[in-house]
Design a protein around this nucleic acid. Structure first.
Lengths: 248, 248
DNA sequence: CGGGGGGTTGATCTCCTTCAATCAACGTGG
DNA sequence: CCACGTTGATTGAAGGAGATCAACCCCCCG
């Protein structure tokens, strides 16, 4: 546990995969040079904890590759995922010292980290970083509110369908594929992680996935490989507007 | 329905109640003068809808007095509250045209509105507004994530206790009262609004409030006036760390 | 071969929903 | 001033969706 891998080979921002979506997306050449001086890469193994709730945070940063989760835990062990971090997503809050949530790598993970203090100074000097961060935070807030509807009001079946729809949608946009045709992707989460995401038990997750499979809403090969024959059907099952009630 | 009250008497920013907490809290004299030129006040009656989901939003603004809610509704009528807006809280998203949620006044409400386009321009020119808005948005995101734990993992009794704790805490800080002594406040929400907040039915809310009352966790006078003899006890019931696991 | 992690399935239980009756407070018009 | 309707709230009885407890499977890996 907690064995950090060797640092990944630093890359040039110019050829960075997440360059156009991350906090740095608005930066000009000069600003990138400044960021370059305070940045470093870190890698984590699948299952490794990036940050414990309550830990001192000496850095902030972006997910470059892989997936991480934010989770909250109650004293008796109940846990709720409160964030799902995909490539280009930002970790950490400028201006706060302690991590409020556990950050865990669910797959192998590479992060582009910035030392916190210099990053905060830069935010004050150049508006481009702060502007982009505001935009990203507002997007996250929207996602969190969508998620609240799922947690508070949807049935187990609808919750699963909603999660599948979110993953399918993301995957499709990433691949620039159409949502009209059938969508194929791999689940990046275990049944247990899904249950933490949706406020269910892993048994219920398993049962509902089986049910959706039996009803032909999804096709499964193995445990993780999913095909969605009709995205429209899936969205119906999720209880969403068929014409896409999602926010931008 | 939808009858707007006469506009409240405009006030000077200098004597504004929410001046030190709202989006404008970082602004200097000059910036306040600029804001003054694009601002206007609007009043709403309790129960009135400020904004319908999907509506064009031509303004953003701050709650000055009163309480408003953000709610999402599914086609079949299930609703989930996703935001509780108290004085100084901000409504609207710069850069977006359509309202993503219903905004409803639950009490009589006064808002300090800014015309959207000029406000967006101002955000680009002066960093103080954008900085404060980022801070506020990050706080809201934290609150949303706390809320997600409540919705996803807490029992009905814990949910009620959590909501009461949140309101008690806010009230205490507003009045600068200590949390050690007993806390007294009025519930700003109906049973139904509480159920929408917590992802429960109003019957369950009613039952659990009765139960907490019977067990001496709270004392009720009438339906709305609440006394909390021991804040520590209430937090235990909420499933929270007794030493206050809340984020700043 | 043994062991463990991830997953599925079954039986039972329970907490919350659902449906429904009742109540108190309030306003309104006859 | 009282009957009536309305709105918010409480309480009861019944049913169900999902949790809990438990057995078992599959597959990979040491």
């Amino acid at each position: 546990m907690s064995v950090e891998l060797s640092v990944a080979a630093p890359r040039d921002c110019g050829e960075c995969q997440i360059r156009h979506r991350a906090v740095c997306s608005r930066c000009d050449e000069d600003e990138l040079t400044q960021l370059d001086q305070i940045k470093y890469y870190r890698s984590f193994q699948a299952g490794q904890t990036v940050l414990w709730s309550g830990d001192q945070m000496d850095f902030v940063g972006s997910v470059v590759t892989g997936i991480a989760t934010l989770t909250q835990t109650m004293e008796d062990g109940r846990t709720q995922m409160v964030g799902l971090l995909l490539p280009s997503d930002f970790v950490g809050r400028p201006g706060r010292g302690e991590a409020p949530y556990d950050v865990v790598a669910t797959t192998d993970l590479v992060m582009c980290c910035f030392r916190k203090k210099p990053f905060e100074n830069m935010m004050l000097r150049t508006p481009h970083v702060a502007q982009r961060l505001l935009e990203m935070t507002l997007d996250e807030l929207d996602a969190a509110r969508e998620w609240m509807l799922v947690l508070g009001r949807k049935t187990a079946r609808e919750k699963i369908a909603s999660l599948l729809a979110i993953i399918a949608r993301r995957d499709a946009t990433l691949k620039l594929a159409s949502l009209d045709a059938k969508v194929v992707f791999d689940l990046p989460l275990t049944r247990e992680a899904m249950s933490d995401y949706l406020g269910l038990t892993l048994e219920t997750v398993s049962r509902q996935i089986s049910a959706l499979k039996k009803d032909g809403v999804i096709v499964l090969e193995g445990k993780r490989h999913v095909t969605v024959p009709s995205m429209e059907r899936l969205l119906e099952e999720a209880g969403d507007d068929s014409d896409g009630g999602m926010v931008s």
